[in-house]
Design a binder for these strands. Structure first.
Lengths: 240, 240
DNA sequence: GCGCTACTGTGGTCAGACCACAGCGACGCG
DNA sequence: CGCGTCGCTGTGGTCTGACCACAGTAGCGC
């Protein structure tokens, strides 16, 4: 293995990762201070900061100023944040075609409802409360879409797979702007909202009834239907 | 918009992201130099570096020293790198339970072989070459597992979905050390390797034959079989 | 005993300096 | 005139030192 000349910030990253793997660090724990880490590892404070910045964006730590037990860098491990940033940036940089993102979302959504429908008593409480919130009349498209995202995310989380839930959240975020643009392209938004409401109810009912096949077809039609109506299936132009 | 006190590095990140979204930057393009970015945005160079570091780890840019057209920060958009780092760190920080990672991999692998089997003429060239490479006798477990990873990744890439391929690569990386540990727990490795070889061939043949159902059952059995033999299922919550 | 203040340590940022590196051009030699 | 070498320039990589805002805390004064 031809090893690179050991960039300083990577040293810090690996040090923290090893502490995590070996159990010396876990969620809720506090990292050593930047100055201390720098001294311990023999690198400059700026290098430590670069590593911590990466960890922060990846959703691994939270930093706060001041003193006391809640200050400094604390391990939090909130996966969805980092996943969202990563996917959003990759889509922006044309690393991920929009079509692949949509396709992957379809795939995961499919698996989520199937898994939920196979559970003896899936937890649909949050899903139902979001459904009710969506019945309000005065919702703007953006508000409605935010609730829509909440609903799909709630289902993913109920399925019990945190990885799938995080990826779903990330995928959703990465195409958020496109979805919102698509909403304004829909002529009769109120009618579309009603259709979406009905589809949501039908999906949740199919899950509750334990009918995985029906739930899958419904969710598939639901998503592809919206994308077609919003005209997203052909537009791959980021420049508008 | 309740805006936070505008952290400088985030300013840089958003600036680059906007350039990407608006098409002013694309794969192969060169970013402005760190000093120039700092001057343009009115921030310190260290803040610029923190933002660039994030972009680098996320797989969006590649930096090199020196001068000339190939120096500086260049947009590359290689998704798998960032995905691997993110997933590996999240697993290390207990943000992602191992069971969920394995379950998600099963899910995606399932979808990949199904998609491939449904294609009229799937591209299995790289898969076949990897299969042949795996027939060598003198392979250590680590070498064999590396080829195994290559094979599964090749299938994912052949399915045409870059997002799925990147996530698969990341999932694989994040559990790499556990898989290697498991290999040493297997008594008769040569026998296991032969079983894996046969299973791989069967999966690829099912794909070539267009039998999606068979390919799915085979790949499912293949993965769960290995994890069971490697004793990983004990530390993993039984999925489904 | 209570309240206020100053101190301490934290991350956040900036400025400046130096290094290694790679390209490119100008200079000098044959 | 041709060609090779040397130095200049601009790049990222790193370190140092210096401030700032902030939050908790200890100690001081009342």
């Amino acid at each position: 293995m031809p090893e690179q000349p050991a960039r300083a910030w990577r040293l810090v990253l690996e040090h923290v990762e090893r502490d995590l793997l070996d159990g010396r660090l876990g969620p809720g724990d506090r990292l050593a201070s930047e100055r201390e880490l720098a001294a311990d590892l023999g690198v400059g404070r700026s290098s430590v900061r670069e590593a911590l910045r990466v960890l922060e964006v990846m959703g691994l730590i939270r930093t706060s100023t001041g003193s006391g037990p809640q200050s400094g860098a604390i391990v939090i491990a909130t996966p969805s944040g980092g996943m969202s940033t990563l996917l959003r940036l990759q889509v922006a940089a044309r690393g991920f075609p929009l079509a692949d993102v949509v396709h992957t979302r379809l795939l995961l959504e499919d698996a989520v409802v199937a898994a939920l429908a196979s559970q003896p008593a899936p937890d649909l409480a949050t899903a139902h409360s979001v459904l009710d919130a969506m019945d309000a009349d005065a919702l703007t498209p953006d508000e409605f879409l935010a609730l829509d995202a909440q609903l799909h995310l709630a289902l993913a989380e109920s399925s019990g797979n945190t990885v799938v839930a995080a990826i779903m959240a990330g995928l959703r975020t990465s195409i958020e702007s496109y979805v919102q643009q698509g909403a304004s392209a829909i002529a009769d938004w109120d009618a579309m909202a009603d259709v979406l409401r009905a589809e949501h109810r039908a999906i949740v009912e199919a899950i509750a009834a334990g009918d995985a096949g029906a739930a899958q077809s419904l969710v598939r039609a639901h998503i592809t239907g919206y994308y077609t109506a919003a005209g997203l299936t052909r537009s791959i132009r980021p420049t508008d």
